[in-house]
């Protein structure tokens, strides 16, 4: 476009058309990104409006303090605590399985395994994360429960223990993979310093690497737990559908997610209070997982790896 004859020609071949193409592609990518954001906002709005209908019939006090949950009975009661209890049992139970096993696996992968073992074992573990949860559910129902019944014959076909164990197994890869990432990024200088002082491999792992990677490890725990809270298929299949507050994990319980499956496929008519309770429970669940995710982000930034 330059009028100077000796200046190099730097104008694009298509002139104004190219510029418009640039704007166009930029717009395409932006709108793709917006789809995700708008969907999230949409889901949140649906949950809010549905819950609004529900809470105009049921008081917040009853919802959060009642200990009985029979939303579609003739004389319904709407205390969400039994569902929260069921969710908590599964979350804590699966944490008891996944945190020790996942952390030990991460330490093995990061500190003990040689490169070849790590290269095969880590992807293998991550395959666990790719198994459809319905398969885990069948596994709980048809394998884990019968094993438990062999030791405790009074165990029901549906029970919290079996579901908790299997949810725990499902989230092991999250804990081990993310924790291993955190441990591998601890610089070798720190390991050398400890070895140079006459520390054993075990001491180097537990007293140098794990503390240095702690924020990443804890964040992996929290993310795995929020995954356990939201897990649906395994608990719907193996844990049963009677909401109750009991400390006996061999009994049937119901989680928030399992209840939502239950009501969604039941014949509760749209618009009824029982149907609308779906939205209230969904909103509660959403609030729980969201706050856990935010907490995990806070942990990561607050206790970010100090060694840099």
């Amino acid at each position: 476009m330059s009028t100077e004859t000796d200046a190099p020609d730097l104008s694009g071949t298509g002139g104004g058309l190219e510029e418009r193409m640039n704007d166009f592609t930029r717009w395409i990518f932006l709108s793709c990104a917006l789809v995700t954001v708008l969907t999230t906002i949409g889901i949140f709005a649906v949950l809010l409006f549905g819950s609004y209908g529900f809470f105009s019939d049921v008081s917040l006090v009853e919802y959060f303090t009642g200990t009985e949950w029979y939303p579609v009975a003739h004389e319904p009661s709407f205390g969400v605590l039994p569902l929260i209890w069921g969710t908590m049992v599964v979350t804590v139970g699966s944490a008891l399985v996944a945190i020790p096993l996942g952390t030990a696996t991460a330490i093995y992968l990061s500190e003990y395994a040689d490169r070849r073992v790590r290269k095969t074992l880590k992807p293998t573990l991550e395959i666990l994360a790719g198994i459809p949860t319905i398969v885990y559910g069948f596994f709980a129902l048809s394998f884990v429960t019968p094993v438990i019944q062999r030791f405790f014959p009074e165990t029901g076909t549906f029970n919290a223990l079996s579901a908790s164990i299997v949810v725990g197994i499902m989230i092991i890869p999250m804990v081990s993979s993310l924790s291993e990432d955190a441990m591998s990024s601890v610089p070798d200088e720190l390991r050398n310093a400890a070895y140079g002082l006459g520390a054993t491999k075990f001491e180097v792992s537990t007293s140098v690497v794990v503390p240095a990677a702690l924020s990443g490890i804890i964040a992996s725990y929290i993310l795995a737990l929020s995954r356990a809270i939201g897990e649906t298929m395994i608990v719907a299949l193996a844990m049963g559908n009677s909401p109750q507050i009991t400390t006996n994990v061999l009994e049937e319980m119901q989680t928030m997610t399992a209840f939502m499956v239950d009501i969604a496929i039941s014949d509760a008519s749209a618009g009824s209070v029982g149907y609308q309770s779906l939205f209230a429970v969904g909103l509660t669940l959403f609030a729980m997982t969201l706050s856990l995710n935010l907490f995990s982000m806070w942990v990561k930034s607050r206790y970010r790896e100090e060694y840099q």
Binding site: P187, E189, L190, N192, A193, A194, Y195, G196, L197, G198, A199, T200, E203, S207, V208, P211, A212, E305, E306, Y307
Partner: peptide, 28 residues
């Protein structure tokens, strides 16, 4: 290595307190 100590090229204190850094070798 408990008889032959080492100091490295790049200062590599542990992400621990000054006290715990010096005490680390004593403890292990």
């Amino acid at each position: 290595r408990r008889k032959i100590g080492m100091v490295f090229q790049k200062p590599n204190p542990f992400p621990k307190s000054i006290f715990d850094n010096v005490a680390y070798g004593l403890r292990v």
